[in-house]
Amino acid sequence: MKKSTILLIVGFVLLWNSGFIGAEYGLPFTGPFTLIFWRYLAVTALIALYLIIRRRLKWLGLKVISLNMLIGFLAHGVWLTCVLLALDNKVPAGIVALVVALQPLATGALSGYVTREETNKYQWWGLILGFIGVVITVAFRIDFSSSSSVFGYLIPLGSVIGITIATLIQRRMEINDEKEKLPLDQSLFYQSLATMLALAFPAIFVEKLATDWVPEFIYAMTWLILAVSLGAYLLMWRLIERLDATRVASLFYLGPPVTMLMAWLTFGDKINITDVGGIAVVSFGILLTQKK
């Protein structure tokens, strides 16, 4: 694997999972719908300004724009909304991480049908090992005495469905070099626009855009906008251009252990020996998914 691709992977994993820390900072000051709405209103405005300066903001046809907006709605809107709603419904973060970690298995199972990229035996073993590593990491942290509604526990499945479909659609466009494929800056603009428009209704009419604009919230939003929504997603689509869908999806297995490490550094959360063991199993599983 090229050094540049390895750097992309490291950057993506760190920036993507820092979003959970940013959300934990931001949620006490606003609702989940409103947080995502403000975030993507700012992201859309920033990318629009960039495209205007570069004279690249243009109408590209309904079919092209609608497909890219669908990808954005699934990869940004559905993914984030389901994660934040689950946390807001008091579902333990470990449960959310565990359910969301089903995404690599879902992508591996469906990629052969959608992208015609077969998942080889090494990748299947890697996906299974990665999932076992996530279970090891999360299971010992779950408070089984805490009960939540069945609906709350099912919410993260929406994130799995959304990001899996978005990844497969994007990868298929990359493989077939379809005309709907846009340059990254234009694609991210329409993806962000779709997310902002989709979240506007619940943010305005359900949560009334209620927000406590304290410095902590502003700092969290700045990080979520620049580092996660722009940085992490840009790196993810770059990786999808270089690697097959299963290999990119396997990186999501690093979510729970990396997030726990960040929480330890940021909030002083305790790291258990089972966390270290889980990280080791996850890392070995991901190495197998990269093997051809």
Rank of each mutant, 00 (worst) to 15 (best):
G162M: 11
L234F: 15
R39G: 05
V281G: 07
G22A: 05
V228L: 13
L102N: 10
T81N: 05
R39W: 06
V96D: 01
P183K: 02
G22P: 08
V281K: 03
I6V: 14
L234T: 15
N120H: 05
A139Y: 14
V100C: 06
G31S: 14
L8H: 10
S148Y: 14
V138E: 07
I286L: 10
E207F: 09
L105Q: 08
W79G: 00
L168I: 11
T44N: 11
L51P: 09
K179C: 00
A42W: 07
R247W: 01
D143G: 06
V150W: 14
Y40S: 01
P215S: 09
T30P: 05
A86V: 07
S283T: 15
T107E: 00
Q290E: 09
V91E: 04
G77F: 03
Q103V: 08
Q170A: 13
L60H: 12
V214T: 15
F29L: 02
L41D: 02
A101V: 07
L224T: 07
N68G: 08
R116L: 14
V206Y: 15
L87K: 12
Y50I: 14
A210H: 12
I9E: 01
K179W: 05
D143W: 04
W237E: 10
K90D: 15
L60Q: 15
L62D: 11
I128C: 12
D212N: 14
A93V: 12
I132D: 01
I225H: 10
P256D: 03
A45C: 11
K63P: 07
L261G: 15
A23K: 00
G77Y: 10
L239C: 02
Y25V: 04
G158S: 05
N68T: 09
G19V: 03
I53S: 07
I142A: 06
L230Q: 08
A210M: 07
P215M: 09
A97I: 00
T195L: 01
Q123E: 13
E180C: 02
L226Q: 05
I136M: 01
Y153Q: 09
P257Y: 00
K292I: 04
F73C: 03
L243H: 02
W264E: 01
S192N: 15
F252Q: 13
K63S: 15
V100F: 13
T44D: 06
G133N: 04
F252C: 06
T137V: 04
P183V: 02
L46Y: 13
G231F: 08
G158C: 09
T274C: 04
V96Y: 00
E174V: 13
E180G: 01
A245L: 01
L110M: 06
A200H: 03
M1S: 12
A200D: 01
G130H: 05
I47R: 14
I132H: 03
I142K: 06
K63A: 13
T289L: 08
A101D: 09
K121M: 13
A280H: 00
T211R: 03
E207R: 09
K63G: 13
R238E: 12
L182D: 08
V100D: 03
L62A: 15
L129E: 05
